[in-house]
Nucleic acid binder design. Structure first.
Length: 1058
RNA sequence: GAGCGAUUAGUUCAGUUUGGUUAGAACGCCAGCUCGACAAGCUGGAGGUCAUUGGUUCGAGUCCAAUAUCGCUCACCA
């Protein structure tokens, strides 16, 4: 490199880093050496993650390294981000998800793929509208109806803009290398076009239908939600027994039918009382099943089954005769009277009434219970809907009209009690269906609903996985995916909301079809079909919002509902690339390469993307799906807002740096375990660590038990609370990762400090020393392993491999060992080459996981050595993001050299051990001898000098004929005995004690081996294994003998001393 | 009720696919170190019989079965 080159690279660097002092530097930079010194002075001993992140983020953004365009000369690698909801900020789960994606994407980019990572956010219909409505109510006391559709939607857009900006800045702060120019939002024009095209295509294929269905109704949000958005909560409830009088009871017939219910208020909607058609037979069946369980089940099951059987038999004798009678009456068409309304309803025979449950008879309320709904359909019963959309009772409830559900319940119960209908009340734990979105109870509600027929669509998504077209990793998650799809439940796609894609359906009054034909003559973007009541038309338009008067002579009315959020998310991999247009992007990047997501949306999202992908494009949306772990707290519970155990990734990044956050998360991502994060508070006043407990983690302000001062937490919201300084959340995992980044920084610092005046050159293999060839051999293996691990989504393995290599091998051995030659002018230059070459490759291998620190070092390194490389030195890329991924020649891997080096490591450990045991002061130089075979002595000899710098020890003799010094501290390994001459420093009794312990250990070892070798092991085990065991036994015996001799010698010396 | 996962050092986790020396790391702990990258560091040390029981095998942390505990998912409970 010439001076001019160096100067120009310095020039660039300074310009970027210190624009404010740019001019003065130019005028004072009269000598290259001065600048070298200046650059070194500019390397602090602690890595400054804040400065580095700011600088590199800006650099990447300005240079546009992450932008990707169709490039036929390169192979594409594409990933679409699971779009975060615009409901709030990113949490730890996102941080994990995005760290993993970025690691893959960055590696692929370096590997030379045309790499695209599409960023975006999701409008999250229900969740976002709910949050804005909640605020509206809290802050202005208004409901959405007060505001109106347009104004509310505008408010939600404002919210969306605000949160999208925050989400994007968080992603950038994490270093995510998304193509920001291709940002998509699930509600933007491009996505809207795709949604309409998808809907239109489904409509055209007859896969869209509308029907009255019992839906999960969220009375708070006033919308239907899907089964997947409902969770069940156990609470204390009651079981009420009601007597329904029989109409005209005959002689010997019961006068009442008793039913039990947990929801008495729904009785106004009762349309029948059911009894099993064959109660005796049903009892027999249940009995037989229990008996079988007793026969074959485990001990615990058996006891349970026995108890159940006893209860069943007792019950049978008690109620069977009456049930049989009731079944007969049902078959004769007899009726009972519904109390309160005094309405006659039929007694019916239906298998839904299980004789072993409740009273054996069950009231049927088809409009308010999913099972009763099925019975209603089966028995062709009327369905009486009692509810308004807001959860109050309607006109069918008579005098209860207008009352909310809870009130109706109390009123009805007291009325039933007064009438003598309520004969018994039992306490009972019941499960309440609750809306995941609004956390309010779900009411089964009969409503018009839009559905997508799933049978064929689901089948394509199942086939994709069973055939291996789409791979789900880890493979165990394929089962849940297939099970869910195999139910082929139709997909309810309508939501009674305002925030979302409005369903492109228009209702048209009954007109001649010719009217429609002429109104839309020549149009292929409008379709129509008779509605389900056959008294009008349903129109579907793909491209435009039809006007009210689009059909002459009648008024079109648009469907008000919007589509389920997942309807648009399902299109994400192809809608973001421009479908339905045949864009070059779609052609080139689709199917995408990998999808990285969490397990709780496998069915909601992944399955639907697969079926929508095939349906729309004929192709799968992605090759592979990787399901990553969940983040749990120290108690093993998932993180959630309600528990207060969530952690803000931004806070972690501020304290430890984005790289530390990423490295920690990647390091924890194993295939089988969830990520458990133990976190604690750090007092901002005194720095002491306060354990985070279930109790204090939701507090807004915490008093430090040590210094007694208060600090605020992430939950602080009032100005008084926020006035206290924020106590950061700290975690061991982040600390370890931060320390690692710092270690890397300092190793780099060491290399840079020692590079001045260095000119890289091509180094030939025979110039290299053992340690050089060793580190290059190890580096080559590590590079290979890291590549394989990342490609197989073994994230933890990649991080672990790099951590161990960088810290234990590169820093603890190579850097340390290099010092001796580095401070020797004659040998300096060769080591510089290797140090630089290995660091250069290590930085690139780490870059996908820790992008900022590696880029920071990479660009600084360019000021010291813009040309570098282990084989043929080349000009380094201006950014590590586009530097080539290290692929090293596998012939570098040399097991012989690795073995040779491991002898050195072993000897070094023995020397250090012996010194430490005898408390030899660190800088006191001692001599030692190595008794070993002459082969090993030859192998050790090239590294003999390094004992001095690494253990302040000098080896005086090596070989088989070495005589140990009389007073020595020794250590024995399989291949050598090492005697450190500590002369009068020695503590003989300590040394003897240690040796005796060692002999004891060896004896135990020997004993178990002897036993093994005298048994049938010798005959049955493979000869190779037996030989190896024999060899190892011999070796152990030898070690023991050496130790015994040492003890004797020490005892003799001790006596002589006396 | 069904399925899935986990159980290894004080703590958090590797190791189990393909069985083979008396099981590794990090943090913490103990002892000693400011030696020309790093105290967010260096060196050394102590600490576990791999949840339990049984089986297969010459040999089991690793394979099989059962049990226990924890977690997750789905379904159902008038």
């Amino acid at each position: 490199m010439c001076v001019g080159e160096l100067f120009s690279s310095l020039f660039c660097y300074i310009k970027i880093t210190f624009p404010q002092i740019f001019e003065s530097v130019v005028f004072t930079s009269f000598s290259v050496m001065t600048n070298q010194e200046q650059l070194i002075n500019d390397l602090p001993t602690q890595y400054d993650h804040i400065a580095a992140q700011e600088r590199q983020m800006k650099f990447w953004e300005e240079k546009g390294f992450f932008h990707s365009d169709v490039n036929p000369n390169k192979r594409p690698y594409a990933v679409v981000i699971p779009p975060p909801n615009v409901t709030g900020m990113l949490h730890m789960g996102h941080a994990l998800n995005d760290s993993l994606q970025d690691a893959l994407v960055r590696m692929k980019r370096m590997q030379g793929f045309e790499t695209l990572w599409v960023p975006g956010v999701d409008h999250a219909g229900i969740a976002t509208q709910a949050i804005v409505e909640k605020r509206l109510l809290e802050q202005e006391g208004k409901t959405r109806w007060d505001l109106g559709r347009e104004a509310l939607v505008q408010r939600i857009w404002d919210w969306k803009d605000q949160y999208q900006a925050r989400i994007l800045s968080q992603l950038k702060a994490m270093g995510c290398s998304c193509d920001w120019r291709r940002l998509r939002f699930t509600l933007d024009d491009v996505c809207a076009k795709a949604v309409r095209a998808f809907f239109f295509k489904l409509f055209a294929d007859g896969l869209i239908y509308r029907g009255k269905r019992l839906v999960n109704w969220d009375v708070k949000l006033q919308t239907a939600v899907s089964d997947d958005e409902v969770f069940h909560e156990t609470t204390a409830g009651h079981f009420w027994y009601l007597n329904y009088p029989v109409v005209n009871p005959q002689e010997g017939e019961p006068k009442f039918v008793t039913v039990a219910t947990t929801r008495p208020e729904t009785m106004l909607g009762d349309v029948a009382v059911a009894v099993h058609p064959d109660p005796a037979g049903e009892f027999d069946r249940i009995e037989a099943a229990l008996r079988e369980k007793i026969e074959t089940g485990s001990e615990r099951d058996r006891d349970e089954a026995k108890a159940e059987l006893d209860a069943l038999m007792e019950r049978r004798s008690k109620i069977l005769p009456e049930l049989i009678k009731l079944a007969e009456m049902a078959k004769m068409g007899r009726k009972v009277i519904l109390p309160i309304q005094q309405r006659e309803i039929p007694l019916i025979a239906d298998v839904w009434a299980k004789p072993d449950k409740g009273t054996g008879c069950v009231k049927i309320t088809p409009a308010h219970d999913p099972n009763d709904y099925e019975v209603g359909l089966r028995q062709k019963l009327p369905m009486i809907n009692l509810l308004n959309r807001d959860g109050t009772y309607n006109e069918n409830a008579g005098k209860y009209q207008g009352m909310p559900i809870k009130k109706v319940r109390t009123e009805i119960l007291s009325e039933l009690e007064n009438e003598g209908v309520l004969i018994k009340t039992e306490d009972r734990t019941i499960e309440i269906a609750t809306s995941d979105r609004s956390k309010t109870p779900i009411e089964p509600y009969l409503n018009d609903q839009w559905f997508v027929k799933m049978d064929k669509l689901a089948q394509t998504a199942m086939d994709a996985v069973t055939s291996g077209e789409v791979e789900i990793k880890p493979s165990r998650y394929a089962k849940g995916y297939l099970d869910w799809l195999s139910e082929k439940r139709d997909w309810p796609i309508g939501r009674q909301l305002w925030w979302g894609h409005q369903i492109p359906i228009w209702y048209c009054p009954d007109v001649e079809e010719s009217v429609l034909q002429s109104a839309f003559a020549g149009r292929s973007d409008v379709l129509w079909r008779r509605n389900e009541a056959n008294d009008g038309w349903l129109l579907c338009s793909q491209t435009e919002n039809l006007k009210e008067d689009a059909v002459p002579g009648c008024t079109l009315k648009r469907e008000e509902d919007v589509l389920d959020t997942w309807f648009s998310s399902a299109l994400w991999p192809h809608s973001t690339l421009g479908w339905p247009d045949k864009t070059p992007e779609l052609e080139y990047y689709y199917p995408t390469s990998a999808l990285i997501t969490s397990r709780d949306i496998i069915s909601l999202w992944v399955a639907r993307m697969v079926l929508a992908g095939y349906f729309n494009t004929g192709k799968k949306p992605f090759q592979q799906v990787f399901i990553h772990p969940k983040i749990l707290d120290k108690y093993g519970e998932g993180m959630s807002k309600s528990k207060g155990n969530g952690v803000d990734p931004v806070a972690v990044m501020e304290k430890f740096g984005a790289d530390a956050l990423r490295f920690a998360l990647v390091y924890l991502t194993t295939e089988s375990q969830d990520v458990r994060l133990t976190l604690d508070f750090e007092c901002p006043h005194c720095g002491s660590v306060i354990e985070q407990t279930k109790k204090n983690r939701t507090q807004h302000v915490i008093a430090c038990p040590k210094c007694k001062k208060s600090f605020s937490t992430q939950w602080a919201d009032t100005p008084e609370e926020k006035a206290f300084p924020l106590g950061p959340v700290v975690g061991e995992r982040f600390e370890v990762a931060r320390n690692f980044c710092n270690k890397l920084w300092n190793a780099s610092r060491f290399v840079m400090i020692n590079l001045d005046g260095f000119t890289p050159r091509s180094v030939s293999a025979d110039e290299l020393c053992v340690e050089d060839r060793w580190i290059i051999s190890r580096l080559t293996s590590v590079a290979k392993r890291v590549t394989e691990s990342l490609e197989q989504y073994k994230f933890s393995d990649a991080a672990r491999t790099l951590y161990d290599f960088a810290w234990d091998e590169f820093c603890s051995f190579y850097v340390e060992i290099s010092k001796a030659r580095l401070y020797d002018d004659k040998r300096r230059e060769l080591v510089q080459n290797v140090l630089l070459g290995v660091l250069d490759a290590l930085l690139r291998l780490l870059h996908p996981i820790t992008p900022f620190v590696t880029e920071e070092v990479w660009r600084r390194l360019a000021d010291f050595a813009p040309v570098r490389g282990l084989n043929e030195p080349i000009q380094a890329a201006e950014s590590i993001t586009i530097a080539p991924w290290p692929v090293l020649d596998e012939s570098n891997i040399d097991p012989e050299i690795e073995k040779q080096f491991s002898y050195f490591q072993e000897a070094l450990r023995c020397v250090r051990d012996a010194r430490a045991r005898q408390n030899v002061p660190p800088r006191t130089e001692v001599e030692f001898v190595v008794k070993c075979s002459s082969e090993i002595a030859d192998l050790l000899r090239p590294m003999g000098e390094y004992f001095k710098s690494m253990a302040a020890s000098v080896v005086t003799q090596m070989g088989p004929d070495v005589e140990p010094p009389a007073l020595s501290s020794n250590a024995t390994t399989t291949a050598m005995e090492i005697y450190v001459d500590v002369a009068d420093l020695i503590d003989i009794s300590a040394e003897i004690q240690k040796k005796e312990k060692e002999v004891e250990r060896l004896n135990g070892f020997i004993k178990s081996k002897e036993a093994k070798l005298s048994g049938s092991f010798v005959e049955k085990a493979p000869a190779q294994v037996v030989a190896k065991e024999r060899e190892s036994l011999d070796d152990l015996r030898m070690q023991r003998d050496v130790n015994l001799q040492t003890i004797e010698r020490l005892r003799a010396a001790a006596n002589a001393r006396k």
